[in-house]
Design a binder for these strands. Structure first.
Length: 600
RNA sequence: GCCCCGGUAGCUCAGAGGAUAGAGCAUCUGACUUCUAAUCAGGUGGUCACAGGUUCAAUUCCUGUCCGGGGUACCA
């Protein structure tokens, strides 16, 4: 990690002054950004480490300030309580931060000994309907987390586990058989996953009608919930039979299943491509759904699991009570499959850690899963992690497919990109090719959406306001992209004017204004921000940072002309600052899987 | 009932022991002959749900209460 020389000096100084103090190995001072309105660039917060040296915080502050007063890199020092506010010489400030930007970017990488192989599983869609806003949050969190972990040096493997079989899949198949009339994505021009989703809806409508007439014919059933009446209906029975036929390998059922799933996969492929998702491995539940059974059988032998009188196999998990892992009829439950796939993924990749990006309604499920894996004797059970994220609600409340309030993923992409496209045309409609406009609109629209979803802490249950979310102003992805676009524009203008800054040494010490220093100070925190975000598995940390750096840049942009600066040396130095900022912003946006348009 | 998560500005959200609690939106006022105004500068707006406790220091940690959400299946 990059560090200012004066910080190292203080640490050395303290170690020499207090040889008897037992400071942890590798201990150092982490400087903080001096709050706005205070005289200072950086702050050494002595509250945090005074105790290490058995000194009162204010005495420590005095000691540190006394030392720093004589330091060659320091211009001025002010003590407030136990905060030591340091004004640095601009030269030293820039050399400790933004001057060598590739070194700065590189220093975000963890040392080899801290790098891990990590499996990130996310998305996990069902093949009976298209993806919606909830999936988009999941996908965005998953892919960005994967990129973030990679960015700091981990070996990351992105995994999807597709739910491609089961009773819910049979529902759309039954509906297709009955109402489909041989329609296909090609014949209808409807995207495959949407077409299959239509039949899932039709199934539920038909089922609702049948249940209504069932209740009418049998008033005693009036109070029964619909799920309990499923197998009383003709449709329900047909669906159940189809599931059994599927499991028995009935050729005509399998053929239809393959056909319809292929439509859905083609549709998903398009959705994923648009989001920029590439999985390293896709597991299909149709291949893995039987996996856990052997393990349960073996666990029963070992006494980890027990058999109940009715034949069901369960495990006793102390505080969480009993959990059935195999039904009395011998079939798997959800957790059985997850035990199986967890072990399978472990065997396939030997990871140091596995992460599941799954909604927070499943926290208990994963707690149980991890405990079961541990009880089965796998020491790596404590390296398993459920990244539980909150649901996406609408201002009107929850999204409900039954009430048609679900925000479809593809529609949402189109809307965001469409609005971005309009904004682009407004600005550059005449001068820029249609092709370029659509490229920009794609980066801006998709970027705005992803950025918005990542801005929230993953665990918060967020409200998605279509009106507000569709804007490209304020704390948004386009705000960050715009800062990059401004820098690109400066670079283009420099070329037009025949200015060449590539040769000659940059005189960083010329950048002395508050705005210039603030950019450099903010830049300094980039590597540790990446590492913190990775450690917390929380991209919102990075999002906040990118906004802050963009804000610092935009202020600089307003106050400090680059190409119109007073001297050539100052022009060159400011240009170098711009280039460095662009590299950081682009690196950050990239990590969030957001593109950077050339201009906007 | 029990378990988990949350309650911070009109709205959406940051802050997780430290300085005067922040940002965006909304609203009001200014700034485009200048390297892009998708920008910038400023105003208005707060009992950090409530009550105790720990601490030199609590919005942050602990306990309790209230309110909201989720979970508590031989569903996934």
């Amino acid at each position: 990690m990059m560090q200012f020389k004066f910080i190292d000096s203080v640490v050395n100084f303290l170690n020499n002054e207090f040889p008897e103090a037992s400071v942890p190995a590798g201990w150092t001072i982490v400087p903080e950004k001096c709050p706005e309105g205070m005289e200072g660039d950086l702050t050494v917060n002595c509250f945090r480490f005074a105790k290490l040296f058995r000194l009162a915080p204010d005495k420590m502050a005095n000691k540190v300030a006394g030392f720093l007063n004589t330091h060659a890199d320091v211009l001025n020092v002010e003590i407030i309580k136990a905060f030591v506010n340091v004004v640095m010489k601009p030269e030293a400030l820039h050399h400790g931060s933004i001057c060598d930007v590739s070194e700065l970017l590189n220093s975000a990488k963890l040392p080899d000994t801290s790098r891990r192989r990590i499996l990130v599983e996310y998305s996990a869609p069902n093949t009976n309907k298209p993806q919606h806003l909830g999936h988009v949050r999941n996908n965005t969190l998953g892919m960005s987390l994967a990129m973030l972990l990679k960015r700091v040096g981990h070996d990351v493997i992105q995994i999807n586990l597709v739910n491609d079989r089961g009773i819910h899949i049979c529902k759309s198949m039954i509906a297709y058989q009955r109402f489909g009339n041989g329609i296909t994505p090609e014949s209808s021009g409807i995207k495959g996953d949407h077409l299959v989703g239509k039949f899932y809806v039709e199934f539920n409508n038909a089922l609702k009608t049948e249940i209504a007439s069932l209740k009418q014919a049998h008033p005693e059933l009036a109070d029964k919930p619909e799920e309990e009446l499923f197998l009383e209906t003709e449709l329900g029975q047909a669906t159940q039979k189809m599931l059994l036929d599927w499991e028995a390998g009935a050729p005509e059922v399998k053929a239809l299943w393959r056909t319809m799933n292929s439509w859905v996969f083609a549709g998903f492929e398009e959705t994923y491509r648009r989001m920029g998702i590439q999985f390293d491995r896709t597991y299909l539940e149709s291949d893995t759904y039987l996996l856990g059974k052997d393990i349960v059988a073996a666990g029963l032998q070992k006494g980890v699991f027990k058999k109940r009188d009715d034949g069901a196999i369960f495990i006793h998990l102390d505080k969480m009570g009993d959990k059935v892992v195999l039904r009395s009829d011998g079939t798997s439950v959800y957790i059985t499959q997850d035990i199986g796939t967890t072990l399978k993924k472990y065997d396939d990749y030997r990871p140091d850690s596995q992460i599941w990006v799954v909604g927070d309604e499943q926290v208990l499920h994963f707690k149980m899963l991890f405990e079961i894996v541990g009880k089965l004797g796998y020491a790596w059970a404590d390296s398993l992690f459920h990244l539980a994220y909150g649901m996406v609600n609408l201002p009107s409340g929850k999204m409900k497919s039954r009430e048609g309030t679900v925000v479809d993923a593809d529609d949402l992409f189109d809307e965001m990109v469409g609005l971005a496209s309009e904004a682009c045309k407004e600005r550059y409609g005449e001068e820029v090719s249609v092709d370029e406009i659509s490229r920009r609109a794609e980066a801006i629209g998709m970027g705005a959406l992803k950025f918005m979803l990542l801005k929230f802490n993953p665990r918060t249950t967020m409200t998605f306001d279509p009106q507000a979310s569709v804007k490209f102003e304020g704390d948004t992805g386009p705000y960050v992209q715009y800062a990059c676009a401004r820098i690109n524009s400066i670079e283009r203008k420099a070329l037009e004017r025949g200015l060449d800054f590539s040769s000659g040494k940059v005189k960083w010490g010329l950048l002395q204004s508050a705005e210039e220093k603030n950019v450099a100070i903010t830049a300094f925190f980039y590597p540790q921000t990446l590492q913190l975000a990775a450690e917390r598995m929380d991209c919102s940390v990075l999002v906040e940072y990118l906004l802050e750096l963009s804000k610092a840049f935009n202020r600089f942009y307003r106050e400090c002309p680059v190409l119109n600066a007073e001297t050539d040396d100052l022009k060159a130095a400011r240009m170098a600052l711009c280039m460095a900022v662009r590299e950081i912003l682009a690196d950050g946006l990239n990590t969030l899987t957001i593109g950077v348009p050339e201009a906007m």
